[in-house]
């Protein structure tokens, strides 16, 4: 016979544990219900690959390809900037820095993660955008490139801390073995430690992408918000997230526009779900590989 107190606590913990799953399912069901209503008036192909997003013209056009490409371009740029920087700084923190500097750097990276995205957004507007405008002689600095640079800062903390973790968890014996053969520190890092940490590095990149794809406020502020097919980094673009954020307030509930925004939500959900799954798979693979030893 269990004591009643134990019983209550046990059930409470169980319910809390299940809550997250229930919420995810409920949100997804709601998204599906609202989003799928769009496909009474628009086919899936036209939605995903249509090149025109004119939701309030008559007749409305709900092609989100420019938005998908906008998100893709901004994310690609951010990752191109954040991954090499993040990798290098993770290597420095994990393998090179003396312990005093290491602590300062780790704190700094955590602080970077603590900056609200809206703050990064307006700093981007007042400093980065004018700078890009002058450097590239543009009519406006609010471009995909500006978004990429700001988002790279937001992805950095995730990328650095996960790569650092995976480097630190590479068995010390690899390092010793390599150094004892007369390898230099750098040879040891790039020939042994990085390959051994590769799963973690891939996972870090995936989670960085996830962070960037889902980001809304900063990109809404500094990418210029033009829902046109992007052709270059120096052009204003609009992302999936920014579209929902900007238009949800004015879309009439029950209209095609409203449903289309929910359908965009489904697309975002699927993308980040896939990315997280992939990241998880990489992390898991890394752990399994290590266990084999």
């Amino acid at each position: 016979m269990k004591r009643p107190f134990e019983f209550i606590i046990e059930k409470l913990v169980l319910i809390s544990g299940l809550a997250s799953i229930i919420f995810v399912v409920l949100i997804f069901v709601f998204l599906l219900k609202e989003g799928l209503s769009l496909f009474g008036q628009e086919n899936l192909w036209g939605f995903l690959f249509g090149q025109n997003w004119y939701p309030i013209s008559d007749p409305p056009q709900f092609g989100i390809l420019p938005l998908i490409l906008g998100s893709f371009l901004v994310t690609l740029g951010a990752i191109i900037i954040a991954v090499p920087l993040g990798l290098a700084s993770a290597i420095y923190v994990a393998e090179v820095a003396p312990s005093g500097i290491r602590d300062v750097l780790k704190t700094g990276i955590e602080l970077l993660a603590a900056i609200p995205s809206i703050v990064l957004g307006f700093i981007g507007i007042v400093t980065l955008a004018p700078f890009l405008k002058n450097v590239f002689h543009l009519s406006s600095g609010l471009t995909a490139l500006a978004g990429s640079i700001m988002l790279a800062f937001m992805a950095m903390p995730t990328i650095v801390s996960i790569i650092e973790d995976s480097i630190v968890s590479v068995p010390k014996s690899y390092k010793e073995g390599s150094l004892a053969l007369g390898a230099t520190r750098w040879q040891t890092i790039y020939r042994v430690i990085l390959p051994a940490a590769s799963s973690g590095i891939l996972a870090a990149i995936m989670l960085g992408i996830g962070r960037v794809v889902g980001e809304t406020m900063a990109v809404l502020m500094i990418t210029g918000n033009a829902a046109v097919m992007p052709t270059s980094f120096l052009q204003p673009v609009r992302t999936l997230t920014a579209t929902v954020a900007a238009e949800m307030g004015e879309a009439v509930a029950g209209s095609g526009h409203y449903y289309a925004l929910f359908a965009i939500g489904i697309v975002l959900f699927v993308i980040s779900f896939a990315i997280n799954l992939l990241a998880d798979w990489f992390l898991h693979r890394g752990k399994k590989k290590r266990k084999k030893r």
């Binding site: 068995p171 690899y174 010793e176 040879q187 042994v192 051994a196």
Partner: peptide, 30 residues
């Protein structure tokens, strides 16, 4: 040079997570 001339075998075998060939070729490559 010193560590090239004085090799060390450790308590726990510590081959690198590379192929067999690359493990043996490692010292020469570096």
């Amino acid at each position: 040079t010193l560590r090239k001339r004085i090799g060390m075998v450790f308590q726990r075998p510590n081959p690198f997570p590379l192929t067999i060939f690359e493990n043996v070729a490692y010292g020469l490559r570096i």
